[in-house]
């Protein structure tokens, strides 16, 4: 995949020190601008010369976008600046203690060096890893009128089983489902002002816009992610399945936050990623298991319900039992399998 073509095409690099300046630059350059966070998704596009922005706007010098703050909304939630690195998220004491689900998901991203540099804002805003698309093939997502992955010979082992619409690519983020399960809010700065959206509404499928995985329009910035205290210290479950234990994107992952009373599930939020073009919140599953005992039978019911309507491609049918099992384990709380090494 990683073909060294040559160095990146020339661009002008802007390094603003405030969100307002960054926004001015983005407005000025419109569709020719590229937002640079940690660069781990961005630089691939630029090195492969699939994208050739004229102006790259580097957010790394904007102090107001960094760090974790407690919010003053009286409920003890936190706000994570978009440029906070994944390592900072993993190590933050409040995130570890109260929102461990997010720390756990971020710790499973890629490799230590990537977590040291990759940002939470970039992690949720990154593009799909479908290799046809990233290799520069003129597919639907790239503005063409064919999907190269959804053909009898297409390499689609990593692709979607749910909600495909022409494009069968998946969202590759590990932190996204954890943020959905924690009922996080994403703070988006648009040229018209600030917008706060529910985590699950930040992500969009090809039915809404086939060229993007999220709602950001040119000129928009994600500035922060807020986590309310609603699910602080709940019972969390995160599991990621991948081919290698380092670097690999999730084939699929699951994140859940649950509050029980006695053996009953009182409240639950659950999301999976790697199944569709956006991380999926499984509302039907949440509704079905609420009030039920937390046991294997409930887990199995949840798993079956989760995969209803799933359609496999040539090489990814394994994702259906995988998703069924992940949801089952997240709901019934069975220990995940581990490798002895």
């Amino acid at each position: 995949m990683a073909v060294i073509r040559d160095v990146m095409a020339a661009f002008e690099l802007y390094q603003p020190s405030s969100v307002a300046d960054a926004q001015k630059l983005l407005e000025q350059h419109g569709p020719d601008a590229w937002v640079l966070a940690g660069g781990l998704d961005s630089l691939d596009w630029l090195k492969d010369r699939i994208r050739k922005p004229k102006a790259v706007v580097d957010l790394s010098g904007i102090a107001e976008l960094r760090g974790v703050r407690t919010t003053n909304d009286g409920n003890d939630g936190i706000e994570i600046g978009a440029m906070t690195t994944l390592t900072e998220v993993v190590n933050h004491p409040v995130i570890k203690q109260k929102y461990g689900l997010l720390a756990e998901s971020a710790e499973l991203v890629a490799s230590p060096q990537i977590r040291n540099q990759g940002t939470i804002g970039g992690n949720v805003s990154q593009d799909t890893r479908c290799w046809y698309y990233r290799g520069g093939w003129p597919c639907y997502r790239a503005g063409g009128n064919i999907c190269y992955a959804d053909t009898p010979e297409g390499r689609n082992r990593e692709h979607a089983i749910l909600h495909a619409d022409r494009c069968v690519a998946v969202n590759p983020s590990d932190s996204a489902p954890a943020l959905i399960a924690l009922d996080a809010k994403f703070v988006v700065r648009t040229p018209k002002g600030e917008r706060v959206v529910d985590a699950e509404d930040y992500f969009i499928g090809p039915d809404i816009d086939i060229t993007r995985l999220h709602i950001l329009q040119p000129g928009d910035l994600l500035t922060a992610i807020r986590i309310p205290s609603t699910w602080a210290r709940a019972q969390f479950y995160f599991e990621k399945v991948r081919d290698r234990n380092v670097w690999d994107f999730p084939l699929m992952n699951v994140a859940s936050a649950m509050v029980t009373s006695g053996d009953r599930i009182e409240r639950i939020r659950i999301a999976v990623n790697g199944a569709a073009a956006r991380p999926l919140r499984l509302k039907a599953v949440e509704d079905a298991v609420r009030g039920q005992p937390r046991n294997t039978a409930t887990g199995e019911m949840a798993g079956r319900l989760a995969v209803q309507g799933a359609v496999p491609l040539q090489f990814n049918a394994y994702k259906i039992p995988l998703m069924r099992n992940l949801v089952k384990r997240a709901v019934s709380g069975v220990e995940e399998a581990t490798w002895a090494s």
């Binding site: 690099l13 660069g39 781990l40 630089l43 090195k47 060096q113």
Partner: peptide, 28 residues
């Protein structure tokens, strides 16, 4: 090695933290 953040051979410390130098713009 890879020039794509996939091997680690370019690792250096920036402010004491390991980074893949193939994936950092020098101006930053």
């Amino acid at each position: 090695g890879c020039d794509r953040a996939e091997c680690g051979s370019c690792s250096v410390l920036i402010d004491d933290i390991p980074h893949y130098s193939c994936s950092v713009l020098t101006h930053t």
